[in-house]
Computed example of a mutant assay.
Amino acid sequence: MSTSSENSPYHHGNLRQALLEAALVILEQRGEAGLGLRDLARAVGVSAAAPYRHFDSRMALLEALAVTGFQRFSARMEAVAAGHPAEPMAAMGKTYVLFALEQPNLFRLMFSPQLKKDGRPGLRMAADTAFDTLRHVVGGDVSAGRIKALSAWAKVHGLAVLLLDGQIAIRAGEDTEVLIAEIIGGL
């Protein structure tokens, strides 16, 4: 009689959440290319078919990971805004860049061109919520607030990508957070 997870009955508390959490770990360790549904099933200890009950394809899993990323990102941004920092835009910008540096593969997946937000309402809503947090802090009317928020987003996103790609070298003894704060200071 075999006791492998391949033959075990499907009994797992919140399998979807367990799959997402394991996928986030794999994503950060191996990158998006190293993430497959079979490997994910093995990591969680369920049959190879079990993930398909929650994600009909690898792309659906990637989309769910990006949504999770945007939700976590939005929560961090909202927490910064709720703290009423003296310079809210600079504080949010710093949080943005630090999020990217702490979770580079998730960050890259969230903004990946392969995950087009058109036709994916869950992904669109999660991304829009993150942007709306920034736009709310900027204030002003809808049009002017949007332009200010887009300008700030372009600056911090560009900084995050430059740091991730090693285009801005961190010098020996240089504090990354201080450097980020100095660059973003004028938001």
Rank of each mutant, 00 (worst) to 15 (best):
A82T: 06
M125S: 14
M77V: 03
Q167F: 10
L163R: 02
G34E: 12
L106I: 09
E174C: 12
G93E: 02
L98N: 08
T68D: 14
E87Y: 02
G93L: 03
K94W: 01
V44F: 08
E63Q: 12
P51Y: 04
T176H: 07
L162N: 12
V46M: 09
R38W: 09
A43S: 14
L123H: 01
L65H: 02
A66L: 06
A43W: 05
E87H: 15
R124D: 06
G166Y: 04
Q103G: 09
S57M: 12
A82W: 03
G140A: 10
P113R: 14
L101H: 08
G122R: 11
I168H: 09
S151V: 01
G173K: 11
G122F: 01
R120G: 03
A149W: 01
A81S: 10
G93Y: 00
G69D: 04
R42Q: 15
K155C: 13
A127N: 07
G145W: 00
Q167I: 06
A149L: 05
L164P: 07
K94N: 04
K116M: 12
P104S: 11
E174K: 09
A64P: 11
K94R: 15
D132S: 13
N105P: 07
A48G: 13
L65S: 07
V156W: 03
L40P: 03
S57C: 13
E78N: 12
D175I: 01
A41T: 05
A49V: 11
M89H: 09
G69N: 10
S47C: 11
V97K: 01
R72F: 05
T133Q: 09
K116C: 12
D175L: 05
R38A: 13
A169P: 04
L162W: 06
D118V: 11
G158V: 09
F73H: 07
A79V: 06
A126Q: 04
A149E: 02
R120L: 07
L150F: 10
E87T: 06
A50V: 05
L134C: 05
L37P: 05
S74N: 13
A127S: 13
A127T: 04
A41G: 10
D141M: 01
A144I: 08
V137S: 04
A90N: 08
L106E: 11
Y52S: 10
D39Q: 13
A144H: 08
F111A: 08
L162Y: 10
G166H: 04
V156S: 03
V156Y: 00
A41C: 11
T95D: 04
M89T: 01
V46G: 08
K117S: 08
K116P: 05
L101M: 15
R120D: 01
A169Y: 06
K155S: 14
F107R: 00
V44C: 12
A149P: 01
A152M: 00
A91S: 14
V67Y: 03
I168V: 15
D39A: 13
V67P: 06
